[in-house]
């Protein structure tokens, strides 16, 4: 096994890009996208997500820094990448199939590849309609189908849920979930829709004003230090916890669990049982990605 076989799908180091003497759109950005992960690339509008992806795809040149794709220079690995950047970029006067046929020929792929990708995005029936008559969701799916031509090992999707209605977002989510299951695919999904990314990503990178604030597996981030506890008598439970000098938050809603900080679940369980209370719920509280995001932004500010 050589280096290229164990290298991450994408690794950038010190990536920097400015436009016209303004503050850097991407500033000393070093990210690592593990192979076969679904990497949620998060940030507000204008945070530098699209610029970063353009740099990775060779659409823009970095001022500084390096990019490695599967351990290789971007130019070498370009054939392994499929992408959808900013907009679906389709020819309206052509049909869905004709649009795919153009990219298929440019990539030197067999004609059967078109049917395969149409099947993946569930657009086979609409393939012979002109794209001008497509809904936004259909356009997004066709653009993803185009990005899937040739079974790329890295798929880069920039705001794939942008402008979609709730049904379109749900369809997109299920499509994104099924892609990595289909084979050796790494997926980078840039988005400002945190809740959507939370549902599909295995790893997240958070960018703010061009700088990386945070990068980690989502599972590591979402496990917080707080513990949720419910008993038959939450008021008595709160008193017990207070006597043990534990910080306890009582939610407003009736029947909601208490949130306890500064103690492992085992100790809390012992306290409740020793106090003669019926323990009905005990769990580590998961942090929502939105909460993590706002904490990180506040910290950066």
């Amino acid at each position: 096994m050589d280096d290229a076989d164990i290298s991450p799908a994408l690794a950038t180091s010190g990536l920097t890009k400015s436009f016209g003497g303004r503050a850097p759109a991407v500033d000393d950005l070093s990210i690592t996208v593990p192979r076969r992960s679904v990497y949620g690339f998060l940030g507000a509008n204008g945070a530098g997500k699209t610029t970063t992806l353009k740099l990775v795809l060779g659409l823009a040149r970095p001022d500084k820094g390096t990019i490695r794709l599967f351990g290789e220079a971007p130019g070498v690995a370009r054939g392994k990448i499929g992408s959808l950047i900013e907009t679906p970029s389709l020819y309206d006067h052509l049909t869905g199939r004709e649009n795919l046929d153009i990219s298929r020929r440019l990539l030197g792929l067999p004609a059967s590849e078109i049917d395969r990708v149409l099947e993946v995005v569930s657009l086979s029936k609409a393939a012979s309609q002109r794209v001008a008559g497509y809904s936004l969701g259909m356009r997004q799916r066709l653009a993803i189908a185009r990005a899937l031509l040739g079974s790329p090992r890295l798929l880069i999707l920039d705001e794939p849920a942008n402008g979609l209605d709730p049904d379109g977002i749900r369809d997109m989510r299920s499509l994104l979930r099924q892609l990595p299951e289909a084979g050796d695919v790494t997926l980078i999904v840039s988005s400002h829709l945190l809740s959507e990314v939370e549902l599909v990503a295995s790893h997240v990178g958070l960018i703010h004003r061009g700088r990386l604030l945070l990068e980690a597996p989502l599972a590591d981030l979402s496990v917080g230090d707080a513990v949720e506890v419910s008993t038959g008598d939450n008021e008595a439970a709160a008193c017990l916890l207070g006597e043990a000098n534990l910080v306890c938050t009582t939610p407003v809603g009736h029947g909601e669990p208490l949130i306890v900080h500064g103690a492992p679940p085992e100790r809390i369980a012992h306290l409740m049982l020793d106090g003669g209370l019926d323990l009905t719920h005990l769990a580590r509280r998961r942090n929502a990605l939105e909460q993590i995001y706002h904490e990180q932004i506040a910290r950066a500010a």
Binding site: R78, I85, S103, L106
Partner: peptide, 17 residues
């Protein structure tokens, strides 16, 4: 034909474009 749909964002990412 390329500017309107912003298809450069797709075409120029292809190998050898």
């Amino acid at each position: 034909m390329e500017h309107v749909p912003r298809s450069w964002l797709h075409i120029l990412t292809l190998p050898g474009a």
